[in-house]
Amino acid sequence: MNLDDKKRIEVILNACDNKKAYNFVVLDVSKISSITDYFIICSGNNERQTVAIADEVLDRGLKEGMNFYHKEGFETGRWILLETDNIIVHIFHREERDIYDLESLWLDNNSLDVEQYGIKNWK
């Protein structure tokens, strides 16, 4: 992981944490995926919170010079996807996260230590 990746991940995680997201997972999928290098996955308790989390990620990311070129899911707030550079952010309503269970599809020992970014609510 280069410094730019680490900084982008840190900005995104801290934005999510600021809006009280929880159950953070950061997956390095660079060796098993051609679409991206990292997945950041987190949860919110309701649709309003997931949209607020996504808005915070966009605001903070843009201030740091990140370009988000794909955004979807704002209409329902159940599963919001944001794509920037080599990171895809998945912000789930807690019920949707259980249904889709992305971690079990992609985990395969690729999880990064979220605590290194100072995230309080990672579980």
Rank of each mutant, 00 (worst) to 15 (best):
N2W: 12
L3H: 09
K7W: 08
K7H: 14
R8C: 10
I9K: 01
I9V: 10
E10H: 02
E10P: 02
V11M: 05
L13I: 03
L13M: 05
N14F: 00
D17W: 00
D17A: 04
D17L: 02
N18L: 07
N18R: 06
K19F: 01
K19M: 13
K20E: 06
K20Y: 01
K20R: 08
A21P: 04
N23C: 04
F24W: 08
F24M: 07
V25S: 04
V25A: 06
V26R: 01
L27S: 01
D28W: 00
V29P: 07
V29D: 05
S30C: 11
K31A: 14
I32K: 11
S33C: 14
S33I: 10
S34A: 10
S34C: 02
S34P: 04
I35Q: 06
T36W: 01
D37V: 01
Y38H: 10
F39K: 05
F39L: 05
I40G: 01
I41L: 15
C42F: 11
C42Y: 06
S43L: 07
S43W: 03
S43K: 12
S43R: 08
N45M: 11
N45G: 12
N46S: 11
N46H: 12
N46M: 13
E47Q: 10
E47G: 03
R48D: 10
R48I: 13
R48P: 00
R48A: 13
V51N: 14
V51Q: 15
V51K: 15
V51M: 12
A52M: 09
A52S: 15
A52P: 00
A54N: 12
A54M: 10
D55I: 09
D55P: 05
V57C: 09
V57Y: 06
L58A: 08
D59P: 03
D59Q: 13
R60N: 15
R60F: 02
R60V: 12
G61S: 08
G65Y: 05
G65E: 15
G65L: 13
M66N: 06
F68E: 14
F68A: 12
Y69P: 03
H70G: 03
K71P: 00
E72A: 09
G73I: 08
G73Y: 06
F74Y: 14
F74R: 08
F74K: 04
T76E: 15
T76Y: 04
T76K: 07
G77M: 10
R78Q: 13
L81A: 07
L81P: 00
L81Q: 05
L82R: 07
L82E: 09
E83Y: 02
E83C: 09
T84G: 04
N86W: 02
I87T: 15
I88N: 00
I88H: 00
V89E: 10
H90W: 09
H90K: 14
H90L: 11
I91Q: 14
I91N: 09
I91C: 14
F92H: 07
H93M: 15
R97L: 11
R97S: 12
D98F: 01
D98I: 08
I99A: 10
I99D: 15
I99M: 15
I99K: 13
Y100R: 11
D101C: 05
L102H: 10
L102V: 13
L102E: 13
E103G: 03
L105A: 03
W106T: 09
L107M: 11
L107Y: 04
D108Y: 02
D108L: 01
S111P: 06
S111M: 10
L112H: 02
L112G: 03
D113M: 02
V114W: 03
I119K: 02
K120M: 11
N121P: 08
N121K: 13
K123R: 15
